[in-house]
Structure formats: C-alpha cells, structure tokens
Simulated scan of single mutants.
Amino acid sequence: MVEARNPHRTIGVDHTAQHLSDFTEYRRKLLTKTGIIREHAPAAARIRGAAPDRT
C-alpha cells in the first residue's frame, strides 16, 4: 500500500509501531464516544431527529 499524500521512502518497524499506536488511540477514543452515545441513545436519537424506538 502506498500513502500518496505523505510518501515514505521506507517503512520501518518503528514507523509501523507508531501508526499502530496512533490507530489504537483513535480507536479507544471512538469506542469511548460510542459507549456514551449508547448510554444515552434516546436523547441522541432526539437530537438527530430520529423516530423514537418502539421496541
């Protein structure tokens, strides 16, 4: 795979580890936000203008 926006001459172990670390942090933040939305699903649906859950 080639990163066209920011090409690198070589992909080393340290570089790969940094990308994985960055992705892990992003994933952690995303899962935290998802959990908050899940806890407050009715309010989140109202904010988005969604119909109330009828189940």
Results as ranks from 00 to 15, higher is better:
Met1Asn: 07
Met1Trp: 07
Met1Arg: 06
Val2Glu: 07
Val2Cys: 02
Glu3Ser: 04
Arg5Met: 09
Asn6Trp: 01
Asn6Leu: 01
His8Met: 05
Arg9Asn: 05
Arg9Trp: 05
Thr10Val: 13
Thr10Ala: 09
Thr10Leu: 11
Ile11Gln: 08
Gly12Met: 00
Gly12Leu: 01
Val13Ser: 07
Val13Cys: 02
Val13Glu: 08
Asp14Pro: 00
Asp14His: 03
His15Leu: 13
Thr16Cys: 07
Thr16Leu: 13
Thr16Trp: 05
Ala17Lys: 13
Ala17Tyr: 04
His19Gln: 12
His19Leu: 13
His19Tyr: 02
Ser21Gly: 09
Asp22Met: 09
Asp22Arg: 14
Phe23Pro: 00
Phe23Trp: 12
Thr24Ala: 15
Thr24Arg: 14
Glu25Lys: 12
Glu25Leu: 06
Tyr26Trp: 12
Tyr26Ala: 15
Arg27Val: 10
Lys29Glu: 09
Leu30Pro: 00
Leu30Gln: 12
Leu31Glu: 15
Leu31Thr: 12
Lys33Ile: 06
Thr34Ser: 12
Gly35Trp: 03
Ile36Leu: 12
Ile37Ser: 07
Ile37Leu: 15
Arg38Ala: 14
His40Thr: 10
His40Gln: 14
Ala41Ile: 11
Pro42Lys: 01
Pro42His: 05
Pro42Met: 04
Pro42Gln: 04
Pro42Ala: 11
Ala43Thr: 05
Ala43Tyr: 07
Ala44Cys: 14
Ala45Cys: 08
Ala45Glu: 10
Ala45Asn: 10
Ala45Asp: 12
Ile47Thr: 10
Arg48Cys: 07
Arg48Leu: 15
Arg48His: 07
Gly49Arg: 04
Ala51Ile: 01
Pro52Lys: 02
Asp53Ala: 12
Asp53Ser: 10
Arg54Gly: 00
Thr55Cys: 00
Thr55Met: 05
